[in-house]
Each structure stands twice: as C-alpha cells, then as structure tokens.
Nucleic acid binder design. Structure first.
Length: 88
DNA sequence: CGTATGACGTGCA
DNA sequence: GTGCACGCCATAC
C-alpha cells in the first residue's frame, strides 16, 4: 500500500515496531525507514514526535549511549525505562 | 521558496 | 581518553 507516509511517519512506524527489551540505533531506524543517512532527521522527528505510541526511548545512539529524551527524567528517565524493559 | 533547527556520526588534534 | 568541528538528512515556519 503506497501510503503517503513521509519519512517522519515511516520512522514512527518503525520505532513503534521495536519489541520490548530491544533497542535500535538512530542509524538502524533511519535505514529501516529507507534512508540510512537520515539518522539526523530521525532524531529531529523524535524530538518533535507527537505520537505517545512510539517508544522513542528505545532508540539510542550508535555509540551505545542513550542519547537524548524529551520525557520524564530526560536521559536519566530513559535509562531507567530501558533498564526496566531489560534492554540493559 | 528559503532559512533555521535538531534526541547524530565521524574524523582529527 | 577528551574536545572540537564539519557534514548529513528531513521537518517546520
């Protein structure tokens, strides 16, 4: 189905498909979205992400760091969640 | 349409 | 091991 889903929507879908206890890197998500070099846009979209159904906290940097997070506790809260999920 | 912004990545000193 | 600078793409205004 050729939805008009833009890169933004596509990324949101990919991230929402991440299973619990699993983490993907911005580059991985961008690659799954169709643009392996758009990891920049991925982070940008996440920050603007208005879909609470998208576990953006499961998206981390390629370095293995948590990166950023616009949620409760910021990066600290993100790590806390990942630990709870078992991703760490 | 053009500009500015951003939760990144990589290389080099 | 740390810090700085550049480059990349897409979105929003």
């Amino acid at each position: 189905m050729r939805n008009k889903a833009s890169f933004k929507d596509r990324v949101l879908v990919v991230v929402s498909k991440i299973p619990k206890g699993k983490t993907l890197t911005y580059k991985q998500v961008a690659a799954m979205a169709g643009s392996p070099n758009a990891y920049r846009a991925v982070g940008n979209i996440m920050s603007k992400n208005k879909d609470p159904k998208v576990p953006c906290h499961r998206v981390i940097k390629t370095s293995g760091e948590t990166g950023g997070y616009s949620g409760t506790g910021g990066r600290a809260g993100k790590v806390k969640i990942l630990k709870k999920e078992g991703a760490i």
